[in-house]
Design a protein around this nucleic acid. Structure first.
Length: 114
DNA sequence: ACCTTGACAGAAT
DNA sequence: AATTCTGCCAAGG
């Protein structure tokens, strides 16, 4: 297991979210082996705002299990929604994506410690 | 060192 | 079925 910081793992997963797809906090947490730490995922993403030294993270593709853009407030305005729409993501209603169509299940991280 | 908060999720009422 | 409550774990006050 890569004993990387919890944040780094989150970042790596988020960075793997395909264009036009979205995933959930819980799914990411689960992929990291800590299904019950979904809140930490959100916290980790929050840190990305301060940390500019991080790679381009499509954190706008991360929503909660209901498909709600719970973190849109941190993007300023409707940037999050607009970006998703621009990627072809369909919205059931404002601030709610159609995760039935665009949900992407993150892959479990492989520890490259071979 | 203790208590509160948080971009969630699932169980309980 | 809808709303409330609790669990989780890290960071900030």
């Amino acid at each position: 297991m890569a004993d990387k910081d919890f944040f780094d793992r989150v970042y790596r997963i988020v960075a793997q979210i395909p264009y036009g797809r979205v995933t959930t906090y819980g799914a990411i947490a689960e992929a990291l082996g800590v299904r019950r730490s979904a809140r930490m995922v959100g916290w980790a993403l929050n840190q990305t705002i301060e940390r500019e030294d991080l790679p381009d993270l499509p954190c706008h593709r991360v929503v909660n299990r209901e498909g709600l853009l719970t973190g849109k407030a941190y993007f300023g305005g409707n940037v999050m929604e607009e970006r998703l729409r621009q990627e072809g993501v369909t919205f059931l209603k404002d601030d709610q994506v159609d995760m039935e169509r665009h949900f992407w299940h993150p892959e479990v991280e492989d520890d490259f410690s071979s």
